[in-house]
Design a protein around this nucleic acid. Sequence first.
DNA 1: GTAACGGATATTGGATACAATAACCGAAGT
DNA 2: ACTTCGGTTATTGTATCCAATATCCGTTAC
Lengths: 219, 219
Amino acid sequence: MKIESVDIALTSSAASIICEALKKAIVEGRLKDGEPLRQDEIARLFNTSRIPVREALTMLEQQGLVATQRYKGAVVAGISPEEASEIWEFRALVEGEVIEAAVPKMTAATLDEAQTHLAAFASAAGPMEWGDWNRKFHIVLYRASGLSYHLSVIEKTLDRVDRYIRAQLSLSNGLARADTEHRAILAACAAGDAAAAKALTRQHILGAKANLLESLHRD
Amino acid sequence: MKIESVDIALTSSAASIICEALKKAIVEGRLKDGEPLRQDEIARLFNTSRIPVREALTMLEQQGLVATQRYKGAVVAGISPEEASEIWEFRALVEGEVIEAAVPKMTAATLDEAQTHLAAFASAAGPMEWGDWNRKFHIVLYRASGLSYHLSVIEKTLDRVDRYIRAQLSLSNGLARADTEHRAILAACAAGDAAAAKALTRQHILGAKANLLESLHRD
DNA sequence: GTAACGGATATTGGATACAATAACCGAAGT
DNA sequence: ACTTCGGTTATTGTATCCAATATCCGTTAC
């Protein structure tokens, strides 16, 4: 007879727990651009020494989420309008290609799950939830492609810019427009029209890019 | 009057020095897939404690060059044929797009530098040099695009697979074929034909993918 | 008043020491 | 012979302590 076994922290080191918590705070925009991340302050928050905190900050720096200067510490890494513009072009390129490859492999379960996320997105209460469901909707569709390397690059890129997407969704028409475009993308996927899904995804991303740059320009 | 000032280790921490050294060894294929990386052994090599070694390994894990298991240590991360196939497709997508954007921005200096690397490639002595000049040739052309985010993704991807490219160059016809294709790509760039440069780059990468999979299949 | 210098404080980088876990090995029992 | 248990060793994860550097602030010279 087998004993009921539960994985107790088999994959979680203190560093990765801290890294994930900080990443979540950055991605959700709770930590603002340029905000300093003090090692001993974070260490106190997690009841650890500074060693795992430093490893977590090293991970985040490698992911481009924080910028570190020797003997000066880490700050949340911002993004310039030029970088934003380029990253949205990159997203259109890669996400367009991935959804095109994904459409022929989508199952009913894929479409169901996407539909669920779309409904949750439409009836969500605040910017944080919008961002979560928006991302889940897209990722579910991409995942059907089975292109794990492409997916990992997409996820890292989204980590880098997700807070700007959330801000975008909060603007006037941001939510309604995204919802409309999501429905069109899902319809194309359900119809098995890979070319249309790719084109709509590209428009979805490049339209958001134009909006973002416009709002940045107004400041 | 101003004093001649030299940056003395302003940007170099022990961790990043160790990281770069290990990365070079992995990229050049001197550390084989699955080879364990012991913390205290590396620490002795660099005359440091294990702390900066651990940070270096953390960086390499984030870059996908090593795989770590809790309480078991880090090993050089290999790559499956499926992953290789997907990564070469990814390269064709991104590098094709980047060189297309780069062609209109190339200067005479860009083409000169690429030509120099191409000549060095053709007259290089061994696999290591071939790999170095091959990579420099492509990167110089890509850099003209000014697409820094795309470039950073390409560099990280190349770090991950460069040793397989080097192995490929060492095979029969690998070097001659690469040289021929490089000349064609450079000619298209010099002629200002962005579409041709893109198509030739894609063929260059996808042909190498086919060769790689074939050689993997023979084993 | 202002700029340059010097010391006090805060913060990070690294070394050492200890705790937790895995791998190995040998002995005992069946 | 095979399995299982226990202990020993090797290796990693973390805490504590010290060194190196930056920042702040008062003082002083002009």
